[in-house]
Amino acid sequence: MDLMLSLALKEWAVAVEALEAGETILLLRKGGIREGKGGFKVEQNRVLLYPTFEHQKPDLLKSEYCKKVVSVESGWHPETVRIGSFAEITDAFLVAHEPAIKALLPYHIWNEQFITERLKWKPSEPVSVLLLRVYKLAETRIIPYRQEYGGCKSWMDIKELVSLENSVAILSDGEYNKQANAIRQTIANPV
């Protein structure tokens, strides 16, 4: 395993916090406006988790996550960014069937309105369902914000290499496999 990493996946800070707390292993993505041709694609299976505050909307979250959102004005960015974890993307499914996506509601932090909005935005594109095995870094990194980190894009190469050495899995193998298998089963057989 390569012990240094610079590729990051940008995600709402509230979602990164939930992943780091072991409250979810699932992300729903269609990608940002600046994804490029072909839309959202998993570029690598190991990524740093980069929390972003812009575009977080409390009304698109389940009630227990609404109060955790820090609202910011469009274009705002922090002076520094906390990188506290990385993830192995163990599964990536493309799901276009609305009942299958709605069946995943118990497994993530978003509400039904979020699902409806995701399906309406770029309706010809499926939703990417990612399962992430998250690891807490042995040493949290505080990196300076750079202008190129902004914008509606999912993937970015941060300028600092981050060590993965001595990182610890948030969930045990057994707990991660139990949750991942339940989600895989739900995708294969939506009610």
Rank of each mutant, 00 (worst) to 15 (best):
A180I: 10
E88S: 08
N111A: 08
E112T: 13
A180M: 04
S128Q: 10
S85R: 02
N166I: 00
L119M: 11
Y135L: 01
I170Q: 01
Y145N: 15
V95M: 12
I187K: 08
E88R: 03
N181G: 04
S154Y: 03
F114S: 07
I83E: 02
R184E: 09
Q147Y: 11
T140Q: 14
V81S: 01
V162W: 03
P78Y: 06
K159C: 06
E148H: 15
K102A: 10
N166P: 04
L94P: 06
V127K: 04
D91G: 07
G174S: 10
D91R: 10
I158T: 06
R118V: 00
K102L: 15
E165C: 01
I101D: 02
N181H: 10
F114D: 04
A182E: 11
P123E: 10
K102V: 04
V81G: 01
D157M: 12
A100P: 14
I109M: 09
A103R: 11
K178C: 08
I109L: 14
A188D: 14
T186S: 12
S124Q: 15
N189C: 13
P106F: 13
R133K: 15
T186D: 07
I109E: 05
A87Y: 00
Y135Q: 05
A92Y: 09
E139G: 00
S128L: 10
F86K: 00
E73I: 06
Y149W: 11
M156A: 09
A87V: 04
E139Y: 01
T140W: 12
D173R: 03
S167R: 00
N177D: 08
N181R: 07
N166C: 03
I89Q: 02
I115M: 09
K153G: 12
H108P: 02
Y135R: 01
V168F: 03
G75M: 06
K122G: 00
I83M: 02
K159R: 13
V95F: 12
E160T: 12
I109P: 02
V81K: 03
S85G: 12
I170G: 01
L131S: 05
V127F: 07
S163W: 04
W121C: 02
R118P: 01
H108I: 05
L94C: 12
L164A: 03
I89T: 07
L164F: 05
F86I: 00
I170K: 01
G84E: 05
R133A: 08
S124Y: 09
A103T: 06
Q113W: 00
Q147I: 14
I89D: 02
G75H: 07
T80W: 05
I170A: 02
R146G: 07
E165I: 00
A180V: 10
L105W: 03
P78F: 04
L131P: 11
Y107P: 06
E112Q: 13
Q113M: 09
T116P: 00
T186C: 15
E73L: 14
S154Q: 09
L171C: 06
G174F: 04
S167C: 04
F114K: 09
Y135V: 01
S172L: 02
I183F: 08
V72N: 06
A138E: 14
A96Y: 13
Q179F: 01
L164I: 02
A96V: 07
S85M: 03
C152D: 15
L161R: 06
A96S: 15
R82S: 13
F93T: 10
I89K: 00
S167P: 09
N177M: 02
P190T: 05
Y145M: 15
P78E: 09
Q179H: 05
P99E: 11
E98H: 12
I83V: 14
H108D: 01
Q147M: 12
